[in-house]
Design a protein around this nucleic acid. Structure first.
Lengths: 138, 138
DNA sequence: ACAATAAATGCACTTCCTTTGCATTGATTA
DNA sequence: TAATCAATGCAAAGGAAGTGCATTTATTGT
C-alpha cells in the first residue's frame, strides 16, 4: 500500500500540501467531482490552484476527466486498473438524473464500437443516464 | 417531399423567416453545429433568438443536442428515422480530433448497455473520438 | 379591417465555468 | 547561500448559457 506521497512522486509530481489535500478529497468522494466541488470544500483554496492541480493530475493519469452531459467537466480518480489512455480499457460513467451525481462503473467496460470505413476510433466516451442505485432503492 | 414550412407547421411551430433560415442552415451543414456557428453565419442575427429557436426545435424533436466532449453543446437535425426520444433508437456521434467536426452516425445504433443492479438506464450518450473519413483519407 | 391578444425578436445584462498573465512565495540545486 | 524553477494566489479576460423586459410581428375574434 503506497502512501499518497509515494504515489505522487512515482508519477513525477512534486508533493505539496495542496496536492495532498486535493488527492485526499478525491479519494473520499465516491463520485466524480466538479472543480467547484473541490473549491467549496476548502474555503482557503484558490480556484486557479485547483484548476492547475487537476490538470497536472490529469496529465499524469491520476485522474480522468468525465463529460457527463451536464455541461460541467467532472473528474474522478483513476483506479488501480484504470488505464485511461488505453482505448479498450475505457469504462462507462453513470449520471443520475435524480441526485445529479456521476459515478464510474469501472467494472463495466465499453463494448467494442464499430465505426464506418474511413473512420478511425481513438477514444470512446459513454455516459448512461438514469436513476442510480441509491435513488432507485427508495 | 414536405417543404420546410409544412414540416414546421406539422410540428406546431410558427413559421418565421428566422426559423426558416436556421433550418436551412442546419440542412446544409452535414455536421453538428454550435450556437456560435449559426451566429457567425448570419451577422444580423441575435444570439438570443438563435438560442431560443434551437430550444424550440429541440422541444419539438426537430434537432437533437449533442454533447461531444468539447464542452460546447452542438445540435444536429433529426433525420427521418430519428426518434431521439426513444432510448433504443439513439445513434452514436463521431468527433474528429483533427478537423474538430462532429457527425451523426445514424446508421450505427448504440448497443444495449448493461448497468449494475439497482441502476435504471434511461438514456445513453455515446461519442467516439478519432479521425473522420475525410481526414483519414488524406 | 381593426382592435385585442399572444408569440417572436432584439437588447442588455447576469451568471457560471474555464483559462491566462503576472507577481509572489516556496522549494530545489549548484 | 545564491540562483533557479515550480507552485501558488490574485486579478482579470473570455466564452457560453440563460433571463428580464421592451418592442415588433403575427394571429385571433369582432
Amino acid at each position: 500500500m503506497k502512501t499518497i506521497e509515494e504515489l505522487l512522486e512515482s508519477k513525477g509530481i512534486r508533493v505539496t500540501a495542496m496536492r495532498l489535500l486535493i488527492y485526499k478529497f478525491l479519494t473520499e468522494k465516491q463520485v466524480a467531482v466538479r472543480l467547484s466541488d473541490i473549491e467549496n470544500s476548502f474555503d482557503k483554496a484558490d480556484r486557479t490552484t485547483l484548476y492547475r492541480t487537476i490538470k497536472t493530475f490529469e496529465e499524469k493519469d491520476i485522474v480522468h476527466q468525465i463529460d457527463d452531459g451536464t455541461g460541467i467537466t467532472k473528474y474522478a480518480l483513476c483506479e488501480k486498473g484504470c488505464n485511461c489512455e488505453i482505448e479498450t480499457d475505457l469504462h462507462l460513467h453513470f449520471h443520475c438524473n435524480n441526485c445529479n451525481e456521476t459515478v464510474c462503473l469501472t467494472e463495466h467496460k465499453i463494448p467494442q464500437i464499430k465505426v464506418p470505413d474511413g473512420f478511425v476510433s481513438e477514444n470512446v466516451n459513454l455516459v448512461v443516464k438514469g436513476i442510480c442505485d441509491k435513488c432507485s432503492g427508495q
